[in-house]
Amino acid sequence: MELIVARNRADLVKARGEGRVALVPTMGALHEGHRALIREARELAPRVVVSIFVNPLQFGPAEDFSRYPRTLEADLDVCRAEGVRAVFTPQAAEMYPPGRQVSVSSGHMGTIVEGAVRPGHFDGVLTVVLKLFNLVRPDVAVFGQKDAQQLAMIRRMVADLDLPIEIAGIPTVREPDGLALSSRNRYLSPDERHTALALSRALFAAETLAAETGAPESGAAGAGPARIKAAARAELDGADLALDYLVLVDPATFAEVGESYTGEAILAVAAKVGGTRLIDNVVLRLS
């Protein structure tokens, strides 16, 4: 099946076709993590549409919009190899015509954790995702767990606005050494990439502590949030990075959990390594 490249709304209507469709929204610079999203989408629907659009609304004034990697031809090759039916790759003027006034508000959840560091970011994310949902009309959309707060926000939007779309999340895809795959990893020098491994080491240390102390056969009480964060922070101490946050949060609300909390939680970290900002997280169970 030949890949269809839709560059405007009219092309997209023709490209979508009839029947069940899965959407994989991306900003391009596709890597193995995106391939995993596409493969999951193919399991969920016979037709897969990938959007490639670097969304200006989700970048702040001092962020890397202008230098965000744009590799469209290579991205199209990835989509062809993965059996994608159509790629929607609009220009900004197509997505945001002149005179646009209405946007999606991400509410309180969009102002905490990642939203506190990047004001307005989640408003921009939800606005473009809702527009893509309306344009593509997918039955299911697939997102990665690496952007955990984004995934939680999109699920909240779908529930709050009664959107008839299933949201599927897949686990973070990592390099063999543990570094979470990201389009921004290409910015890292060899030394910076080595430094960036402290992020995944911190998360894995916390994950190990939570698993060992929470196992019934261990005979030990489960580790609480303070101990878990301390185990992670110990791996970050001395690393040449600027930490934005290290938080243990409720997966549904992204509110920080208290010492008496039990159940699933997300340990999320964000830091700048050199000039590159990276995020990562793991899902833990507190008992």
Rank of each mutant, 00 (worst) to 15 (best):
D160K: 05
G107I: 04
R67A: 13
L135V: 09
F59D: 00
F59S: 01
G120H: 07
R47I: 02
M95A: 05
H121S: 07
V104P: 15
L130Y: 06
E63H: 03
R67T: 10
C79I: 03
A93Q: 13
V128I: 15
P56Y: 00
R47W: 11
L130R: 08
A152C: 06
N55M: 00
G107H: 14
P56W: 01
G60A: 04
M153D: 00
R155H: 00
P90D: 07
E94Q: 12
Q101G: 08
E63K: 04
P98G: 05
A81L: 09
K146H: 07
A148I: 06
V78P: 06
I154M: 08
A152R: 01
V113D: 02
I52V: 09
A116I: 08
P90M: 07
S106E: 00
V49W: 08
L57K: 10
T127K: 12
V87G: 11
R155A: 08
F143V: 11
L126Q: 07
V158M: 06
L130T: 00
V136T: 11
G83N: 04
T111C: 10
P56G: 02
P98R: 14
I112V: 15
Q149P: 15
P90S: 09
Y96S: 04
D75A: 10
N55I: 00
L132S: 08
G110I: 05
L135F: 14
L161C: 06
P98Q: 11
E43G: 15
E63N: 03
P56S: 01
D77I: 04
A141Y: 03
G115V: 02
V84G: 12
Q149A: 05
S66H: 02
E73L: 08
D123C: 09
V136A: 09
V136P: 14
R137N: 11
V113N: 10
P46Y: 10
H108C: 04
L161Q: 02
P69H: 11
R137Y: 12
L76R: 10
V140M: 03
E114T: 05
P138S: 08
F122W: 13
A45K: 12
F122N: 09
A141P: 13
Y68M: 01
V128C: 07
V54G: 02
D64Y: 01
A74Q: 14
D160T: 05
Q101D: 14
Y68D: 00
K131P: 15
G110D: 12
M95N: 12
L132C: 10
D77C: 06
F143Q: 00
V78F: 01
L44Q: 14
V84Y: 08
R85M: 09
D160H: 09
M95G: 12
Q145R: 14
D123P: 11
V102W: 13
P119V: 05
V84L: 02
V48P: 11
Q58N: 01
I112R: 15
P46A: 04
R156W: 03
C79H: 08
R85Q: 13
E82T: 10
R70C: 01
L126D: 04
A116K: 14
E82C: 13
S103G: 11
M95H: 13
E63G: 05
T71L: 10
L126F: 07
E43Y: 01
Q91P: 10
F133T: 04
L76E: 02
N134R: 15
D147G: 01
A74F: 09
F133I: 15
L161R: 04
A148W: 03
V125C: 01
L126N: 06
V125N: 07
G144Y: 04
R70Y: 07
